[in-house]
Write a protein that binds this DNA or RNA. Structure first.
Length: 496
RNA sequence: GUCCCCUUGGUCUAGUGGUUAGGACACCGCCCUUUCACGGCGGCAGCACGGGUUCGAGUCCCGUAGGGGACGCCA
């Protein structure tokens, strides 16, 4: 392990589920680590005692695993820089605070929340703008401090920030970023409750964990100058920073629940597969370049990933495109992968192959499922659509498109044709044993010719009669998969 | 309100001073076909605006407008 090895992290706070914004941040860090043969660390930022929950931590880990983003160091895995939950690192933060105290870069602030609110209100009443902490406790006398302490008044520690000059850094994504120091107020670094604030814990951890790059959402930009000042106060060399653009909803407002799914697990339940989610997220705010297929596996993404290609402007989340990427991944999967996806779906619905159907060349459930997949071909493009596409293969009590049914079967002539087709099939197919698609086709086309009809005049009614739908896979193959007994029964039922 | 950032078709984007401004999603049309989907072909549609710099600007500079973000003893 050399000093040059890239070390990056994803540091979620466990106050909810893994949402797309977090997933994208995690993904980019992960892609960077993997593409650089570096290390990806997962750290749980749970210093907020009120809001952090174990269920949330679990949900986030689940989301990460589902996406296939594995971490080299983290809670549950360990590593040389642990522990990986901030709540277990209190001693480390306290030591760091001691260092800050010794250097005189922090001071005690005895202001209560009410004090702060009152002063802020006063400023506003006077027609001004409260621009953050006013430095009230910055130069308390020894006596005052002693008095407050004697009272047992809780105190927080604030960082003394410079009033002049500027703090800047060269952002990996947008280039130079600069903030005037006078807009950076003396922020609390250690809360009165004995916990470090986010900005302090982050700096201590990123340094102690050897992070070389910090890639995070653009909503963290304004934290960066403060963090830089903390690095400086601690005498530490800061990592490189990169701020990635926000993900917006279709209406260009910050992406939220009202736009639709936002948690990774919600997408999963809507039939989005992880490779598609990863692929789409990677495309959002990043580009593989001028041309080429956008449908990429996670390995291809690793191979092509470059921080230089990360965009600087916010991008709107496009559910349609995600759906498209999803369908492309689904279609490109090999038969075994599709089977692994389909089998559980069939189980969920309680759909089992029945030998009485007499389907040519099929003996059991798996064989039947494999044949259905072949039959679906390019229609295997949506996990959500699958049940609707397959229901009629497993039960006679399947959904029926009422409109299509009435339009078709409402016609006396059509019903006669359906009956004629049933008669022909009964007559011409071997009385027992399975019939192939070719067998069905021969009968249908033969009847059409004999009756002076177009094949479609028989095929379309048959489709409605057999599937209840006006659209389906190839009719003769559908017949084969249904098996002659059921084909006959459904044709008779429809013509009745 | 203050500070910061962003701006190529409806959406994601390529583009790094000289291009008929390219691709993808969506949409429309045609072809394929037993329907639908897939696939193939074609189409609609874009450099926010105004000033500069330059022989020449989507590309550089300034401003305006629009959008986003941050202003916590939350993370």
């Amino acid at each position: 392990m050399s000093d040059h090895q890239a070390r990056v992290r994803f540091a979620p706070s466990p106050t909810g589920y893994l949402h797309v914004g977090g997933a994208r941040t995690a993904l980019f860090n992960w892609l960077y680590a993997r593409s650089q043969k570096g290390v990806f660390v997962l750290r749980i930022e749970d210093t907020d005692q009120e809001r952090s929950t174990e269920e949330s931590t679990e949900a986030i880990l689940r989301g990460m695993r589902w996406l296939g983003l594995d971490w080299d160091e983290g809670p549950d895995r360990g590593g040389d820089h642990g522990p990986y939950r901030q709540s277990e690192r209190l001693e480390i933060y306290r030591e760091a605070l001691e260092q800050l105290k010794a250097s005189g870069r922090v001071y005690r602030c005895f202001c209560s929340e009410e004090d702060l609110e009152r002063r802020a209100a006063a400023v506003v009443d006077a027609g001004g703008h409260w621009e953050g902490y006013d430095g009230h406790c910055r130069s308390l006398s020894e006596e005052q401090i002693a008095a407050f302490e004697a009272e047992g008044r809780p105190a927080a520690w604030r960082l003394r920030t410079p009033d002049e000059g500027s703090t800047f850094w060269y952002d990996i994504v947008v280039g130079k970023r600069e903030f005037q120091n006078d807009v950076i107020t003396d922020r609390v670094v250690f809360k009165a409750d004995g916990f470090p604030t986010y900005n302090f814990a982050v700096v201590v951890d990123d340094h102690r964990m050897g992070m070389t790059h910090v890639l995070r959402g653009d909503d963290h930009v304004s934290n960066t100058p403060l963090q830089l000042l903390i690095y400086e106060a601690m005498g530490w060399k800061p990592p490189k920073f990169g701020h990635m653009p926000m993900i917006l909803g279709p209406d260009r407002k910050r992406l939220s629940k009202r736009h639709g799914a936002v948690s990774v697990e919600e997408f999963a339940s809507q039939g989005i597969i992880p490779q598609a989610m990863v692929n789409y997220l990677a495309l959002l705010g990043w580009s593989i370049g001028a041309s080429g297929d956008e449908v990429l596996t996670i390995d291809q993404l690793v191979a092509k990933f470059s921080l230089k290609k990360v965009n600087s402007s916010p991008a709107a989340f496009d559910y349609d495109k995600l759906e498209h990427i999803n369908s492309q991944h689904l279609k490109r999967m090999d038969a075994d992968e599709k089977l692994a996806l389909l089998l559980p779906i069939l189980d969920d619905h309680g759909w089992r192959y029945d030998p009485a159907w007499q389907v040519a060349g099929v003996e059991e459930q798996e064989g039947y499922a494999a044949r259905l997949i072949a039959l679906l071909g390019g229609r295997f493009s949506s996990l959500q659509a699958l049940p609707g596409q397959l229901e009629f293969f497993f039960t006679d009590d399947h959904a029926v498109d009422r409109q299509a049914w009435d339009d078709t079967m409402g016609d006396e002539t059509v019903r006669q044709r359906v009956t004629a087709l049933a008669d022909a099939l009964e007559r011409q197919l071997a009385s027992d044993g399975p019939a192939s698609a070719a067998d069905f086709e021969a009968v249908v086309r033969g009847l059409a010719e004999a009756e002076g009809l177009k094949a479609g005049d028989l095929i379309h009614p048959a489709r409605v009669a057999l599937t209840g739908q006006s659209r389906s896979a190839g009719m003769f193959e559908v017949m084969e998969m249904l098996g002659a007994p059921r084909v006959l029964a459904r044709l008779r039922r429809a013509a009745a």
